[in-house]
Design a protein around this nucleic acid. Structure first.
Lengths: 334, 334
DNA sequence: CGCCTCTGTCGAAGCGCTTCGATAATCGGT
DNA sequence: ACCGATTATCGAAGCGCTTCGACAGAGGCG
């Protein structure tokens, strides 16, 4: 157990300067001579000084903490969410901010409480639905916020996401280039569409648009996440659409079941059926065969979200919509 | 955008009492007449007062925030970690605390910083390794901490975890009762064992001990997470151990690959081979057939960890080791 | 009826920091 | 060598809350 924490006035005394001088050295908000700066920083090091977060927040009206609002709903692929979360934390640290984790169980009250108590300076919301109950609240919160994902009415909000419509289209275009003429999309579980989760719908729209543009035949289906149901869907698909030779899978939990089901039904990938997935690279690489895939740049999304939030905290105006371009990696499944 | 935040003195004025009286009403630390209490609470509601977290932390020396330290290492199953994380957040809120998310990239410095700056009152560490670099630091931190998982030397630390040794044993005992005589454990990827992650080793030890106790034949293998490698291991196993009829799988990412590989090699579950998994219920239920499994009581672990931390924050002495009992659910795979 | 003990409330002193205005000291220009 | 502009530093006033000691009034008791 260590002793009482070192305060700024002890540092000041040790360095032979005023408290305010130490503060200015640390914040860089006023010019300080090289000599004084060095003495102060030495004292900081020697004494092991860490500014008290509460006192700093109180005096400066900035907690240097942002909230990460992360509801954990069924049907969401958790590892991807965690990639977002991790990159948000990492990016926030780069701006000298910490991250407070808020989950769904408190509902909007949690957001209101964290914001109103000045616990956090701003909010990053993940897993945004088309009609998200948290969104109206955001608009009358004093604290700035950034959404990862798009609600139906994103006017006045700052949103970041992968361009899922483009991702869906990219998959179709890739299959078209490979000469396939009939394709299918296996998407999220139906509950996700019903809930109106934006990314699932937008992928489906992009898929449909590209199918129309390229003149392919194509269907979009929802896809549950247990093996037997996946297997049944695949069987049905193979049965009713003999010309089908390309599959787009946008469901991280089901993608291995899809491969298993194809194997079970005697179809070889890619010889009989080509498969392209929208999923993280590690899942694509771990499959057999390794899958051609469009990856979700979680890292980049998190970083951009934080960057935008920091801009807003500085009082700058930022673009409302940020769409990141998807990237397709060809592997052995197409 | 809302206007400047309401302060305690505005509440006091509105209610016609002193600031300190409002504080005592809210904290309950001194007796207040029913009448005054009601007036104050009314004012709080009418004005929409939320105490300023920074000011409160500064004055009371308690931030009412705990840190959740969550390194995200390869080979760890993220959904399970998130179950822990979620239950920690939920439990913390029950004690009126919030959760600050710390990840690995800052290393131990992040812990030191958060603790020294009084940003957090205590720490919950997840995914603890046998020789964890964060552990020595904990011992000389003034802030109390609780570990989820056990390091090699847990003396002086408060640790909570599922009794993985018992979980491994439970699986073996279940298979023995079902009449199997030769079994195998497919565990974590080898990197996880090499890193010395406690739970993986303890499961293996429990498995080995139970194999010895019950007089079965058994091997424990590590298990990578891509389909082709799993398939190869299964092939080898079936080939070299014709008597093998029971499999224990302790690897969430590989469990579906195992089932796929068995199918591929023409083995039926449970008729030819019985499979029992150590994994969350949702994975077990989604497999085909649904798997008999020992679940990891993530919810309970998180809750206990927070409870212990709160006890320590109150200055109470708590038991060093808390092992939660595993529970086996029989489904269709055995 | 006077004394003592509770109860309920108040005022004021910080908690450790940031920031504003003031003040010295230094400098270049003439 | 003098003046105004700069540069570097200081002191003090809060930020909004908790908590300590004080104290008035109510109530119990002999």
């Amino acid at each position: 157990m260590s002793e009482r924490a070192v305060t700024i006035s002890e540092v000041a005394r040790h360095a032979g300067v005023a408290v305010s001088t130490v503060s200015y050295v640390l914040s860089g908000k006023r010019a300080i001579s090289a000599d004084t700066r060095r003495r102060v920083l030495d004292s900081v090091r020697v004494l092991g000084y860490h500014p008290n977060a509460g006192a700093r927040a109180l005096a400066s009206k900035r907690a240097n903490v942002i909230a990460l609002v992360l509801p954990l709903r069924v049907g969401m692929h958790v590892p991807v969410l965690m990639q977002f979360a991790t990159s948000v934390v990492t990016a926030a640290r780069q701006y000298d901010h910490d991250v407070l984790l808020l989950t769904a169980d408190e509902g909007s009250d949690g957001l209101r409480r964290a914001a109103a108590s000045a616990l956090v300076d701003g909010l990053v919301l993940m897993d945004v639905e088309l009609h998200d109950s948290r969104v109206p609240l955001l608009k009358d919160l004093a604290e700035p916020s950034v959404l990862i994902g798009f609600p139906a009415d994103s006017a006045g909000l700052t949103c970041v996401d992968l361009d899922f419509a483009r991702a869906g289209a990219l998959c179709v275009e890739h299959l078209a280039e490979r000469g396939h003429t009939e394709v299918a999309l296996l998407g999220a579980p139906s509950v996700v569409y019903e809930r109106g989760t934006g990314f699932a719908r937008r992928t489906r729209e992009g898929f449909a648009a590209a199918v129309a543009d390229t003149g392919l035949k194509g269907v979009a289906l929802s896809c549950e996440e247990n093996f037997d149901q996946v297997s049944a869907v695949i069987a049905e698909l193979l049965d009713t659409r003999p010309g089908l030779s390309g599959l787009v899978v946008h469901n991280e939990a089901a993608v291995n079941h899809v491969l298993g089901a194809l194997r079970q039904h005697g179809r070889r990938v890619p010889d009989d059926i080509a498969v392209v997935a929208i999923c993280p690279d590690d899942i694509a690489e771990r499959s057999s065969p390794p899958l051609t895939s469009v990856l979700i740049p979680a890292e980049e999304v998190g970083r951009q979200a934080v960057r935008l939030l920091m801009e807003k905290l500085e009082g700058h105006v930022v673009p409302e919509d940020t769409l990141l371009q998807p990237w397709l990696t060809v592997r052995d499944s197409t």
